[in-house]
Amino acid sequence: MTEISWQRVDPGAPKLWRESAWYGLFWLPIAAGLVSSAFVSWWAAVFVGAALAVLLHLLISHFSTRRFERLSFALADDGLLIRKGVMWRSERYVPRIRIQHVDVVEGPVARRHGLSVLSLHTAGAHLESADISGLRSADAYALRDRLLRRDGA
């Protein structure tokens, strides 16, 4: 086992995560505004919606930044190490010989940012795979090729 150097994902990743999070949550402030309009006057309802939007934005930004700070990976001779997680933090070691296949996924939003997700699949019985989100696509493909090379170069 040689010493290893930890690498960060692309600095543009937090922006992508923020954007993706908003695609999933945009309806929440709107719904909150609509529901509260049944109980309070319309300008108070707009205020509730706006306040929730600001709060969500702060939370999402905070977690995206923290996620970026916590996420790093290292390619070693014997496999891949991945550190991640804000509240529940993990450092996972996937031995090279256990890697069955590697996927590079470029989602529609991620593609616009030029980023992709690298997923490692093993024969483990629990479906979760080890993945690294927010890699520059060229880096993701390069990493995939290096992982699949048996000589570990």
Partner: peptide, 13 residues
Amino acid sequence: IEWVSLVTSPMDR
């Protein structure tokens, strides 16, 4: 073993 992971929760830390 397929892979191993070291996990810490806020309580753990």
